[in-house]
Amino acid sequence: MTTTPENGGGTLTDERVEEQTSTDYRYDAGDHEKFSHYAPKDKIMQAMIEGTPVRALCGKLWVPSRDPSRFPVCPVCKDLYENVVHNDDPSS
Rank of each mutant, 00 (worst) to 15 (best):
Q20A: 10
H37Y: 06
E18S: 04
G10I: 02
G59Q: 01
D24N: 13
T23E: 12
H37K: 10
N87Q: 14
P64I: 12
C77W: 00
D24G: 04
E18I: 03
D24Y: 06
K78E: 10
M45T: 14
Y81M: 03
S22H: 13
K41H: 09
V17L: 08
G10S: 06
S65E: 09
H37I: 02
S69H: 05
V85S: 10
S22P: 02
T13L: 13
H86L: 13
S69K: 12
L61G: 10
G30H: 07
R70V: 10
K34T: 13
P68H: 05
Y25E: 11
D31Y: 05
I44T: 00
P75A: 06
N83Q: 08
G8K: 00
P53F: 09
E18P: 00
C74S: 01
Y25R: 15
I49H: 03
P90N: 08
R16M: 07
H37A: 11
G30Y: 05
R66M: 12
T2F: 14
G59R: 02
F71V: 07
G10K: 01
N7I: 04
L80G: 01
T2L: 15
Q46R: 14
P75Y: 09
Y27S: 14
D79W: 11
D67Y: 03
P75L: 07
H86N: 13
P64W: 13
V54A: 00
V85Y: 06
V63F: 03
V85P: 01
V63T: 12
L12V: 12
P5K: 03
A56N: 01
T21V: 09
F35M: 03
T4I: 15
Q20E: 15
L12I: 14
V54K: 00
R26N: 15
D42Q: 08
E19F: 10
P40L: 07
S91T: 13
R26Q: 13
C77K: 00
Y25I: 14
K78L: 09
E82S: 07
T21F: 12
D31S: 10
M45R: 14
T23D: 12
V54Y: 00
T4R: 15
I49D: 03
V63P: 00
E6L: 11
Y27L: 15
L12Y: 14
C77F: 00
P53E: 12
K43N: 06
E6C: 05
N7C: 12
H86I: 08
P40I: 05
K41S: 11
T21E: 10
K43M: 06
Y25L: 15
V84Y: 11
P75M: 06
V76Y: 01
S91E: 12
P64L: 13
Y25W: 15
F71P: 01
P40R: 09
M45N: 13
Y27I: 15
S92T: 12
V73K: 05
W62H: 08
R66A: 10
F71T: 03
T52R: 10
M48Q: 08
